[in-house]
């Protein structure tokens, strides 16, 4: 055992580096957000069957959009900061989709994670800010808080209270393929990328 100590150092170096490599997907993924995106891109995730309610108070479900590509984002209507940016980005997306070959094949869904406050009335009012809901853009909530949590958990969306009555959450566009699986997550301002993906999948 003349070189036992040196061997020990080598073993620790090897296993330590391996652990860090594994824990960061080859030193590329250091944050939970990028880990979530990488994981979704690698293995698409089915979404839980959850009853949703839209801005008119009518019941909808993700199955209703089967055969279409869904671009989904999360908001809460009291939000005055990032969610307004998210809204105008989806507005741009709608302008691009409508009157193009994508119309009817791609829908936009804005989902509130604050169903206790955001009822159909609040959702409708929120929709009005961006020209109202139509066949392309739906504003929905999962009426029960449990269902909302299941949805958020399935997509690894984390919502944190900001201490001022609002929330902080992952701002991103979630791309759901015609089979109802979450297949990609892109930056909320990556409109071109989201459209390209939708075109590919639709």
């Amino acid at each position: 055992m003349k070189h036992g100590g040196i061997v020990g150092i080598m073993v620790v170096l090897l296993f330590g580096t391996a652990a860090l490599w594994w824990g960061s997907d080859g030193f590329t993924t250091f944050t939970a957000e990028s880990a979530r995106r990488l994981d979704v891109a690698r293995s698409p995730r089915p979404l839980p069957a959850v009853a949703l309610e839209d801005q008119r108070g009518e019941t909808v479900a993700f199955e209703d959009f089967a055969g279409k590509v869904v671009l989904l984002n999360f908001v809460y209507t009291r939000c005055t900061t990032i969610c307004t940016v998210l809204g105008s980005e989806f507005e741009q997306l709608r302008d691009e989709i409508e009157h193009s070959e994508l119309e009817g094949r791609v829908v936009l869904v804005t989902l509130t994670f604050d169903p206790e406050h955001d009822g159909p009335k609040q959702l409708a009012r929120y929709a009005e800010r961006y020209g109202g809901a139509d066949a392309t853009w739906h504003f929905v909530r999962a009426p029960s808080m449990d269902d909302t949590r299941r949805l958020l958990r399935a997509m690894d969306v984390v919502v944190v209270a900001d201490g001022f009555g609002g929330f902080v959450h992952n701002a991103a566009i979630h791309v759901i393929d015609p089979r109802g699986r979450l297949v990609r997550i892109v930056d909320s301002d990556a409109i071109g990328e989201a459209l390209a993906l939708a075109r590919e999948l639709a």
């Binding site: 036992g4 150092i9 620790v12 330590g16």
Partner: peptide, 13 residues
Amino acid sequence: RAGGIAAVLLATF
């Protein structure tokens, strides 16, 4: 001493 280095390295990782 070498063992000590290995141990501290482990803690660092």
